[in-house]
Simulated scan of single mutants.
Amino acid sequence: MKLIECPRDAMQGLHDFIPTALKAEYINLLLQVGFDTIDFGSFVSPKAIPQLRDTAEVLAQLDLSTTKSKLLAIVANLRGVEAAVQHQQITYLGFPFSISETFQQRNTNSSIAQSLNTVEEMLNLCDKHRKTAVVYLSMGFGNPYGDEWNVEIIEKWADELINKGVKILSLADTTGVSTPEKIETILPALLKKFDQTEIGIHLHSTPFTRLEKIEAAYKTGCTRFDSALKGFGGCPMAADDLTGNMATEDLIYYLQSKGEDLGLNMDKWQEAMLLSSKVFN
């Protein structure tokens, strides 16, 4: 069972700048909890995401000496990839590959075809610098733009990316439109067809539908979950103000209720929960 805690996704849309030292203090606490991966920052244009303009400075303040957690940084273009691979502390580079042409243009200022080329170049640079790429199939459960969406389109792009050499795919629900029914239809098909690929899920949700979505993913055999403490963050384009990330505490509660041994330091988790009120105001 791999849990990916996503403070980067939680912070990125906030208007008021979180001081670098406070970001680092919070992420250092999360590093002590025992998650598989911390999605901690992004190497994107400061104009696009000003909140994360200090990712390199935050990284310099992180203590990785006593943690088993690995670091993941998001990139949106080749320039970001080239910056991220220079940091040996980073294990994973995440790239949002939208199966909606409209959203790919909005999110990365490039077409799907151009993004496929970026993924190829990212894979080459990851190999050269001993990093691993994580590609998110964003708008994986539908989109608000009227772009065509169906299970066959998801499988087509998954197949293309895996053939390029992608080893980890995460099916991303960008605007919270996933349902247990969609999860139970899409995930088993991907897990069966691409059984040599690590396939995870990055769900957005309102507080009222979190547990049913977690349960649907778990029952399909999913073992890789993205989430963020208290469900902070989410996509700014989501139609519902309550739509945010999957709340990590709900995920922990559900998985523990199923007898999963997560190996987490719950004392450090409680400390992080307390500090979050200062981070997220």
Score class of each variant (00 low, 15 high):
residue 71 L to Y: 01
residue 111 S to P: 08
residue 124 N to Y: 08
residue 20 T to F: 06
residue 213 K to E: 08
residue 132 T to N: 03
residue 86 Q to K: 15
residue 199 I to M: 00
residue 241 D to M: 13
residue 228 A to V: 09
residue 22 L to G: 00
residue 220 T to Q: 04
residue 168 I to Y: 06
residue 21 A to R: 13
residue 255 L to S: 09
residue 177 V to T: 02
residue 134 V to H: 01
residue 145 Y to R: 06
residue 237 M to K: 11
residue 129 H to N: 07
residue 57 E to P: 06
residue 233 G to R: 01
residue 45 S to A: 13
residue 31 L to I: 12
residue 178 S to I: 04
residue 279 V to P: 02
residue 199 I to T: 05
residue 155 E to C: 13
residue 16 D to S: 11
residue 215 E to M: 11
residue 71 L to V: 10
residue 169 L to F: 02
residue 113 A to F: 15
residue 69 S to I: 14
residue 214 I to D: 00
residue 178 S to R: 00
residue 70 K to E: 13
residue 238 A to G: 04
residue 183 I to F: 06
residue 134 V to C: 00
residue 63 D to K: 05
residue 245 N to V: 13
residue 43 F to P: 01
residue 195 D to K: 06
residue 48 A to G: 04
residue 176 G to Q: 00
residue 97 F to K: 03
residue 12 Q to P: 00
residue 201 I to R: 05
residue 38 I to S: 03
residue 86 Q to L: 14
residue 227 S to D: 01
residue 57 E to I: 11
residue 232 F to C: 02
residue 76 A to M: 14
residue 126 C to P: 03
residue 45 S to Q: 05
residue 194 F to E: 10
residue 42 S to M: 10
residue 95 F to Q: 00
residue 118 T to D: 08
residue 17 F to K: 14
residue 34 G to F: 06
residue 11 M to D: 03
residue 244 G to V: 09
residue 210 R to E: 15
residue 205 S to H: 10
residue 142 G to Q: 07
residue 50 P to Q: 10
residue 136 Y to W: 01
residue 252 I to Y: 07
residue 122 M to A: 04
residue 26 Y to H: 07
residue 90 I to S: 00
residue 159 D to T: 11
residue 52 L to D: 03
residue 263 G to C: 11
residue 133 A to R: 05
residue 151 V to L: 11
residue 28 N to F: 05
residue 232 F to I: 15
residue 152 E to K: 15
residue 258 K to S: 05
residue 190 L to V: 08
residue 183 I to G: 02
residue 146 G to H: 01
residue 204 H to Y: 09
residue 19 P to F: 12
residue 108 T to F: 00
residue 197 T to K: 09
residue 208 F to W: 13
residue 118 T to P: 02
residue 219 K to N: 11
residue 180 P to W: 11
residue 242 L to M: 14
residue 71 L to G: 10
residue 201 I to V: 15
residue 131 K to I: 09
residue 59 L to G: 00
residue 57 E to A: 13
residue 97 F to G: 02
residue 134 V to A: 02
residue 173 D to W: 01
residue 106 R to Q: 14
residue 230 K to H: 15
residue 18 I to D: 01
residue 120 E to Y: 12
residue 217 A to M: 12
residue 116 L to K: 11
residue 60 A to E: 12
residue 132 T to L: 09
residue 72 L to N: 13
residue 270 Q to K: 15
residue 200 G to H: 08
residue 158 A to W: 13
residue 1 M to P: 01
residue 83 A to G: 03
residue 177 V to A: 04
residue 133 A to L: 09
residue 77 N to P: 11
residue 255 L to A: 01
residue 171 L to K: 10
residue 213 K to A: 03
residue 245 N to Y: 08
residue 16 D to Q: 15
residue 198 E to Q: 14
residue 136 Y to H: 07
residue 64 L to C: 06
residue 71 L to F: 10
residue 245 N to R: 07
residue 4 I to Q: 00
residue 166 V to N: 01
residue 255 L to P: 06
residue 220 T to F: 13
residue 93 L to T: 04
residue 226 D to P: 01
residue 72 L to Q: 14
residue 274 L to I: 12
residue 199 I to Y: 03
residue 262 L to Q: 07
residue 213 K to R: 15
residue 197 T to P: 07
residue 230 K to A: 10
residue 176 G to A: 05
residue 233 G to A: 06
residue 148 E to L: 14
residue 272 A to H: 07
residue 12 Q to T: 00
residue 52 L to A: 05
residue 229 L to V: 10
residue 95 F to V: 05
residue 9 D to H: 00
residue 56 A to T: 12
residue 104 Q to A: 03
residue 112 I to W: 03
residue 39 D to A: 12
residue 135 V to G: 02
residue 26 Y to C: 06
